[in-house]
Design a protein around this nucleic acid. Structure first.
Lengths: 210, 210
DNA sequence: GAATGTGAAAATATTCACAGCG
DNA sequence: CGCTGTGAATATTTTCACATTC
């Protein structure tokens, strides 16, 4: 999506699989196949999306990708924990543009409850279930210390969220019906240390998003 | 490493590949093969690490993994950008225990320079190259806005870091000799949205660390 | 001419299954 | 016996290559 956007920004109407691939450090066939596979997920028929001899219409392709990845919907998320990471998330801002909105903020600490953070008033963690339901939030963001994370995850699950973005450095035990994505700083740092070490022995590159 | 640690905490001396696999939601053979492959990276001979009929010695295995992943070394990192994410990283703390230490903090904003954040005094971004060299830092952490990220990456590269942990929402163009790990909030959220959407159509679980 | 979509081929990864060891 | 280490068997992913379309 980012590369597509940058092509659009450059004023391009269409882009070829190989141009995209070059920008991403991939093989053109990968892009074509991934696109075909991804779009095949779109329930019914969406038909071929590229045009022989021309490439892909950037705007059209972006729309289809948004659709199939769920980025076309509006996702309501609740943030649990407003320590440093929580506040960083609130300040991050880049969510709205992507269809994500933080609709409530919770914290277990008495001292935090009632405080204002941006446009949010911090609520007591006790009210989490009720609040999530009444707001219709579908995503929970866990930004609490490790010790509290599992219990928050259980509360979120009980409240009926469909997915959890977990910043606590642990694997959550969660129902099969819930999607969990972990963002873990120490894992990322260790990944980097490993990549650096590996690069010393073998002269090949490694890059990835965690 | 986390699962191993938790087995140790539970008082276990040894652990079998299948016990580890169960904790990680994997197949025992995967664990054995990964371990064999990972330890094979250890330049010379390290010999078999598990014991037939018993399993793996947790402490020994952890040591070997640390060694091969570079977690046994002490990594010095410089943090560039002390907005919300930067400050969250500083407050995170969990680094020292893992062999990572933030040895300097930089920011481009005049108003920030000279301020104290924890035990660090924020330095002017202009001094980055000199400072990185004199401190012998090997990792750079980019926590600046997207617009500034590439230029910071170039500075870090010029200063001779071996790897970059990038929190800016973009792909950095970097020399092949530098390892880059990206941590991207909007990508993680989109991943979650996709997983949720996918779970609605296909009844399979998806979980991952980003 | 340029570039897609996709079978077929090659490369990787995962799983099975079992000989061998303590 | 319980469990590792690993060949062999599967399955999946990646790449190639080309007929087809605009």
């Amino acid at each position: 999506m980012r590369e597509l956007q940058s092509f659009v920004t450059q004023g391009r109407q269409t882009v070829s699989s190989s141009a995209l691939a070059a920008a991403l450090g991939l093989n053109g066939a990968v892009v074509r196949k991934d696109l075909a596979l991804l779009l095949a997920r779109m329930g019914g028929r969406s038909g071929p999306i590229g045009q022989s001899g021309v490439g892909y219409d950037c705007a059209l392709l972006m729309g289809r990708i948004r659709e199939v990845t769920g980025s076309d919907r509006q996702w309501k998320a609740v943030l649990v924990g407003c320590g440093n990471i929580g506040r960083a998330l609130l300040a991050y801002g880049g969510f709205d543009g992507q269809g994500f909105e933080i609709v409530a903020v919770f914290d277990a600490k008495r001292a935090m409850v009632g405080k204002r953070l941006g446009k949010h008033r911090v609520q007591a963690a006790v009210d989490l279930r009720r609040s999530v339901r009444s707001l219709g939030a579908t995503i929970g963001i866990i930004a609490v210390p490790r010790e509290a994370a599992q219990s928050v995850a259980d509360d979120l699950t009980g409240a009926g969220v469909q997915g959890i973005l977990n910043f606590a450095p642990m694997r959550l035990a969660a129902s099969e019906t819930i999607s969990v994505v972990n963002v873990d700083l120490s894992v990322s740092l260790q990944q980097l240390a490993f990549d650096i070490s590996a690069a010393r022995s073998k002269p090949s590159v490694r890059e990835g998003t965690r």
